[in-house]
Design a protein around this nucleic acid. Structure first.
Length: 211
DNA sequence: GGATGGATTGGCT
DNA sequence: GCCAATCCATCCA
């Protein structure tokens, strides 16, 4: 008998765990976004996380490159886990990072993909369809830029604590999906670190950014 | 002040 | 597969 899962927001201190643990355990958790409509209706979007990447400190070639390329606003990566690091790439796409690990080491977790809770039934149905029929809906928020756009995130999140107060937080409702490891995306410049298996995916899920 | 380029994406050849 | 979109921090005059 599984007892009804208690849904609790993760507190900032949860993100001070080792970055690989944070990145792996975030798979299956729920990224929540509180929004206010034009008619003042408050609603909460719930996006279940299917894909993350870990960036694990100065010895990680991709982090080293990122720090030197971006400079200034990367100082936040040295903070203790529990705050947001949001930044734009290509002038278009917002990357949602969660600072993780202990203070003093530049570490973070990038949220790369998820699916809206309200779509989970439809996803289950699509799983049994042939691959060329699975693409339309599930892929919708698979990719860091698309996810951020759907949740209407912006750079004001930068430096805020990961808690309901920031209107963006993460809940644990007991979901524990199978997790697989993959190489990270878009860091070909990172030397040997480009091949490290630091991308965590919900095994065989439809809503992933890449195979 | 101006040039450069990116943890990406979608559209067109 | 190629390429433009479009912001912002950095580097170089």
């Amino acid at each position: 008998m599984s007892k009804p899962a208690m849904t609790t927001p993760l507190m900032p201190v949860w993100f001070t765990q080792p970055t690989c643990v944070v990145a792996a355990d975030l798979i299956g958790k729920v990224l929540c976004r509180q929004l206010t409509d034009s008619d003042d209706t408050v609603k909460v979007l719930r996006m279940r996380i299917t894909e993350t990447e870990a960036y694990i400190g100065a010895a990680d070639g991709s982090v080293e490159a990122h720090l030197s390329k971006r400079g200034g606003d990367t100082d936040i990566m040295y903070k203790a886990g529990g705050v947001f690091y949001a930044y734009l790439t290509y002038g278009v796409h917002l990357m949602l990072n969660l600072i993780s690990g202990a203070k003093g080491s530049p570490e973070s977790v990038l949220i790369r993909a998820g699916f809206l809770s309200e779509d989970s039934d439809r996803l289950l149905a699509e799983q049994s369809l042939p691959p060329d029929k699975q693409l339309t809906h599930p892929k919708q928020f698979a990719g860091p830029g698309k996810l951020s756009k759907r949740l209407q995130l912006d750079r004001t999140l930068y430096g805020m604590a990961i808690s309901p107060e920031s209107k963006v937080w993460i809940e644990d409702d007991g979901c524990r999906p199978p997790v697989s490891l993959r190489p990270r995306i878009g860091i070909d410049y990172a030397g040997t670190a480009k091949d490290w298996l630091l991308r965590y995916v919900w095994t065989d899920h439809l809503s992933l950014s890449k195979k």
